[in-house]
């Protein structure tokens, strides 16, 4: 798209978009590190994830501050309006992703105090899918690629399906051996957090669709999560 007649306006729009991309990177790292902390029983890494969360919160505040300034001083319209609005909305989603990653890290700290259990592998698999989902949607944002966003939007049921199967698996373990209940409950929460990260990714995909086309996706998303 052509430059604005007022160049500073273009620069401010670019800056807020880059800030969202940077925040996306922080959230992505938080998720993958939290999962590595669970998989490798790495207490130190879990603590790093927890300590880094305020950076993600600060990024959200920075994006909101920039958005408010743009609204007040530039009165963005049409595609510019969508750029600012989308940055604001995605920042909110990423802040939640950061919190969920922090929660996974906290649970890793507890799990690391108990005996290792095999089911961690299934959670890891689900985590890889959720992490990839987040990465794809952030790439779609960086490239303003509406088709890639739609693909992410359509693939969320995969994460939901994994969550359902993990849920059943964990229940079986808990019934078989009540000593496992505590660890399994934590894993179940981790899985639920991953499922929610998937949902936030899907929301971001919807915002990208709006950003690029100006239209909302109005159909209902395919769901494989029977619990909801």
């Amino acid at each position: 798209m052509a430059e604005h007649t007022v160049k500073a306006f273009s620069e401010e729009l670019d800056a807020i978009t880059q800030e969202v991309a940077r925040m996306g990177g922080l959230a992505e790292t938080a998720v993958s590190d939290a999962l590595a902390a669970v998989a490798r029983r790495d207490t130190e890494l879990a603590q790093v994830v927890i300590q880094r969360d305020p950076k993600i919160d600060a990024a959200q505040r920075e994006i909101e501050k920039r958005a408010i300034k743009l609204f007040a001083l530039r009165q963005p319209l049409a595609s510019d309006l969508r750029v600012v609005l989308t940055a604001w909305r995605i920042a909110g989603e990423l802040e939640r992703v950061g919190d969920l990653a922090k929660n996974i890290a906290k649970r890793a700290l507890i799990l690391n105090q108990d005996e290792p259990i095999q089911l961690t592998r299934s959670v890891e698999r689900m985590g890889k899918i959720a992490g990839a989902h987040l990465k794809q949607v952030l790439d779609a944002y960086a490239n303003k690629d509406v088709q890639a966003a739609i693909n992410v939007w359509n693939s969320d049921d995969n994460i939901d399906a994994h969550y359902n199967s993990l849920f059943r698996e964990l229940l079986t373990y808990m019934i078989e051996d009540p000593r496992m209940i505590s660890s399994c409950a934590h894993l179940l929460f981790i899985a639920k957090n991953l499922e929610r990260i998937g949902d936030h990714g899907t929301n971001i995909a919807e915002y990208i669709h709006f950003l690029v086309t100006g239209e909302e996706i109005t159909a209902q998303r395919p769901r494989a999560d029977a619990a909801e």
Binding site: N154, H209, E215, I217, T218, A219, Q220, P222
Partner: peptide, 10 residues
Amino acid sequence: NSPAMTAPMV
């Protein structure tokens, strides 16, 4: 919203 849709509808 049309619940039966699996592809995004605009």
